[in-house]
Write a protein that binds this DNA or RNA. Structure first.
Lengths: 246, 246
DNA sequence: ACAAAAGTGTTTGAGTTACACCCATGA
DNA sequence: TCATGGGTGTAACTCAAACACTTTTGT
């Protein structure tokens, strides 16, 4: 921590947000098309510079609000992931960025007109396995964030952050399936969720779809950690009601 | 990421190292006594400013080498944890720090004369539950790092980073006991370690203490993740050889 | 009555805990 | 031969995956 006349320039600091949501059975991330150089026209993670009076968490909350409109009493989960610091990662000069992970429910409008040209939801899977590259080192940041999100669903109750206030077990199961990319057995899923006291609390209401039995509705409970953790396994075969071997 | 004339000063960036070791059955952390204001005379985590040509990981490796002499081919584990950014966390001005976790074997000399006044190993437990406060926000950083290290032993093979090149099962067990703060059953510990292919590899050698049966020696294996994870439980009672009910 | 989705109960087998017990050495 | 740490074997129990089966709706 001692400063003995060595060469260490002052540096600009940004936050970059990896905002995930689950839409149409797939995990998607919010990206903006850059309107200015560098990387003009390329997709990038939303983000911006940390200001003088705020800390990193504050900057991340502000950017999240600007990009999605989320942030009042109904704050989605927001968590710092890591710092990216290679000299040369930003052509404009020495810029260190700190990435944040946000989990949001499926939002009606992709964005609420910020300074970014256009914000779009993009499926994550195609972005990582081939496809166009994102601006800066955002491919790496996105990959790290996905890894982190998958771990989080195993050990915490944060899957509920992807859901509306009221949700069904099927909704919650689809979140796990989208993030992990594996099918789950709904019947075992019930027990795993219910064995952790306070993961979800029933509202007493039901929701009717076009077809099928109406599902009970739940809300996020007070629990935050999962003991024991969720395990990604259990390939559901639709083997029950309509395929008895007799 | 767009810069539209807003107020965002350039900032200085430091790395702070939480270097853990296990000595005398207890988890200890390397601290330096500050020779200059602010917090002169107080204990602090070793660290320093990131330089122009290097990234954060490079700065952390350099500081680790300066403080402990470790860093050649026998690199200890070094991992980025998080960024601490509150305005006012450093009286000298706006300084953002990024913390790193390092796991080191019990080193002969606490340090190799760096620019820091004096480096000492301090037991972690007393530091967190009462006692003197560390400089800056290093109490918070230390607490976060301990939490992270405990999680790491559950899910990775990194406990071996605390050991010498050759170690016994008893050595490895003592690492877990020191970091987790709970006693383990050596007999079940064997199986847990051995069920993960490549956690440790036997050398064929043995080590004799003053008393007792000589123990087989092992080295770190190629595995890095633990499936399934280690679980902290299993209170060893010394119930075997010498207390049969007959 | 049928299809489709929601939810419950039961079998089975793998994994863990808690031990009894044996082994190898120094004093 | 005793004390001390090292190491193996095993019975009882727990838990979770797999799957049969029942319930509740819309058409």
């Amino acid at each position: 921590m001692t400063d003995n006349g060595r060469t260490h320039a002052r540096i600009r600091i940004t936050v970059d947000l990896v905002i995930f949501t689950v839409r149409q059975e797939s995990l998607q991330v919010l990206l903006v098309k850059r309107g200015n150089p560098p990387y003009r026209g390329r997709l990038a993670l939303p983000g911006g510079f940390m200001r003088d009076h705020e800390n990193l968490d504050g900057a991340a909350r502000r950017e999240l609000l600007e990009e999605t409109g989320l942030g009042g009493p109904d704050v989605p989960h927001l968590e710092q992931l890591g710092a990216y610091s290679d000299p040369g990662r930003d052509p404009r000069g020495r810029v260190v960025t700190v990435s944040y992970l946000a989990l949001a429910p499926d939002l009606p409008a992709p964005t609420a007109g910020s300074d970014a040209a256009a914000a779009v939801w993009e499926p994550v899977e195609p972005l990582l396995s081939g496809g166009d590259r994102l601006a800066f080192d955002h491919d790496v940041i996105l990959r790290d964030a996905l890894e982190h999100a998958r771990r989080m669903l195993e050990n915490t109750t944060l899957a509920t952050a992807f859901c509306e206030r009221d949700f069904t077990m099927g909704d919650l199961k689809r979140v796990y399936e989208a993030v992990w990319g594996v099918p789950l057995d709904l019947r075992n899923f019930y027990r795993k969720v219910n064995r952790t006291e306070g993961f979800v609390v029933p509202t007493g209401e039901k929701r009717s779809l076009e077809t099928g039995r109406p599902a009970l509705l739940y809300r996020k409970g007070p629990a935050t950690l999962l003991y024991p953790p969720m395990t990604r396994a259990s390939h559901s075969g639709h083997e029950s009601s309509a395929q008895s071997p007799k």
